[in-house]
Design a protein around this nucleic acid. Structure first.
Length: 233
DNA sequence: AACCGGATCGTCT
DNA sequence: GACGATCCGGTTG
């Protein structure tokens, strides 16, 4: 019997068909799935607990909103690949590309529980106070897994890829429907009202909600353009 | 628990 | 030249 499109093959990573839908449809189904990264240091696996949908060209908060660039090129390619970007001069975040046609949509992986390779993840994240903190936040998740820009474009549906994603453990096909919550996305200024963030209700590894905070301008206020040097007060 | 400043640099205007 | 799909450590409440 052939597995249906979108159904995981036994023992292997999620099939590419899993990512055929829109980011909004795929995002909640990724909860509970396991992202793993294997390096010479070892393997770290993370069960996803929090994700956000970014709906490509129709979404002002998406990196793809203003079209294809060198950085976001992977978003416009085949679904099932990782889009890894660098931000704030020091952090990486990872997305999984969904249907690319006309939308370049993707799902940002925001948090998860480390289920394998805890010692290695802890070594990579010395600031973590406890196990829940290891992958609590998109940049922390990448840090725990050892993900950087070198993995941009990695095929997570390929069993031979160092970065791959497996279905929810214990489920041969289909996905159990855990208690999923949804709400506004974190840290964005545009389209902040769209409830496109999904997480496992009450899970302690979910990152706290933070709204967008504009950075203070380093530029001081301009002085009065006085020409005669007279002091006014 | 909430808030603040600093770190730091690739990317796009 | 400005701005982040962030994190951390410290301070305040």
């Amino acid at each position: 019997m052939l597995a249906q499109d979108g159904e995981p093959a036994a023992g292997g990573p999620l099939p590419r068909g899993f990512f055929a839908g829109s980011s909004l449809a795929v995002a909640p189904r990724l909860l509970g799935c396991v992202l793993e990264h294997e390096t010479s240091e070892g393997l770290v696996a993370v069960a996803l607990t929090e994700v956000e949908a970014y709906n490509g060209s129709g979404d002002p908060a998406s990196h793809a909103y203003r079209g294809r660039t060198g950085r976001n090129a992977v978003m416009f390619g085949e679904p099932g690949h990782a889009y890894v970007y660098f931000t704030y001069g020091m952090h990486f975040c990872v997305n999984l590309v969904c249907r690319p046609e006309r939308t370049a949509s993707a799902v940002l992986l925001r948090a998860g529980r480390v289920t394998d390779g805890v010692p290695l993840a802890t070594a990579r994240r010395p600031a973590a106070r406890n196990g829940n903190d290891l992958a609590r936040g998109p940049a922390r998740l990448c840090q725990a897994l050892g993900i950087d820009r070198g993995l941009d474009g990695a095929d997570v549906c390929d069993p031979g890829s160092p970065l791959r994603i497996r279905p929810v453990p214990g489920t041969g096909s289909g996905h159990p429907v855990p208690d999923v919550s949804r709400g506004p996305r974190v840290g964005i200024s545009a389209a902040a009202d769209r409830p496109w963030r999904f997480w496992l209700t009450g899970d302690p590894t979910v990152s706290p909600y933070r709204g967008h905070v504009p950075r203070a301008r380093p530029k001081p206020v301009s002085l009065p353009a006085a020409g005669d040097g007279t002091i006014h007060r």
